[in-house]
Nucleic acid binder design. Structure first.
Length: 265
DNA sequence: GCGACAG
DNA sequence: ATCTTGTCGC
């Protein structure tokens, strides 16, 4: 798929200050409101009973993206779904040049992800990433950074919270429950995006809860680009099936591990 | 100096 | 993220 803003693509050799200033520029270009070229109500995993909605061209193409690692290389995997049906899977193996640094994840994994996305024949309407979007120190997490580069609606789905403060206690909540994540002192105001204690930068979302023992932790859903925090959670809810992770990301995660076997020395 | 941190 | 056995439940 095409890059609308290649100048924002993560380059190697940047200093920490340069990476942070690029993130601020990305955040300034990011849209944290609904600016979707499709109807969010049409996003679904489809109904096994009625197959009519699944193959419909009104049903948006949703891509799940995740990585697995082999020494100093990343394997980035993309799975594209239309109403629950897998229509394409691609992956790319790319050398890594940075270690994992909290707050700079997109500079480690962004290159590999763009390599994988360039292999796509289909052109996704929505990108779902494993990581944060607006829930980020400079409001420019992985999902925001890549969503802006591609100028495609994107959402970040993280398994743990990078920053921000939940409105309520998160323990033992029922399926479907959600509560806002508000900006805190670690979040900077950037461009037209405020970061006051009232600013909602994402939601904690209880996607799954089993009747028995282990209490499942919630997911942390945040806008990447061209989507509001509210619509982002709604979309992730609509894309959730029998597991904790939404289908696009869960399938990309599984595919990243599956494909990895072919490259292990 | 202390605390805190996606994958 | 990754390294890993057993274990509980449907």
């Amino acid at each position: 798929m095409r890059q609308a803003y290649p100048e924002f693509a993560p380059k190697s050799g940047l200093s920490r200050a340069e990476m942070e200033s690029l993130q601020r520029r990305v955040a300034e270009s990011a849209v944290f409101e609904d600016a979707l070229p499709f109807d969010p109500a049409n996003v679904s995993l489809g109904d096994p009973e009625n197959e009519t909605l699944t193959g419909d061209s009104d049903t948006p193409l949703v891509a799940g993206i995740d990585q697995s690692f082999l020494d100093d290389r990343a394997l980035s995997a993309v799975v594209v779904l239309r109403g629950g049906e897998v229509v394409e899977r691609v992956h790319a193996v790319t050398d890594l040049d940075l270690p994992y640094i909290p707050g700079l994840l997109s500079f480690r994994e962004g290159g590999p992800i763009l390599d994988a996305l360039s292999e796509l024949d289909t052109d996704p309407d929505l990108l779902v990433f494993d990581g944060s979007g607006r829930i980020h120190f400079r409001q420019a997490g992985l999902a925001t950074h890549l969503g802006v580069i591609c100028d495609v609606p994107s959402i970040g789905v993280a398994k743990s919270l990078l920053c921000g403060t939940p409105d309520e206690d998160l323990d033992g909540r029922p399926e479907g429950w959600r509560t806002p994540i508000r900006a805190d002192d670690s979040v900077d105001a950037v461009g037209g995006h405020p970061a006051t204690p009232e600013t909602t930068i994402g939601y904690a979302f209880q996607s799954r809860q089993y009747d028995s023992r282990p209490i499942v932790n919630p997911l942390y859903v945040s806008p990447g680009h061209r989507v509001s925090a509210e619509t982002a959670v709604d979309l992730i809810s609509q894309l959730s099936g029998e597991y904790k992770l939404p289908e696009p990301t869960r399938l990309a995660d599984a595919y990243a591990d599956e494909a990895k076997a072919q490259y292990e020395d």
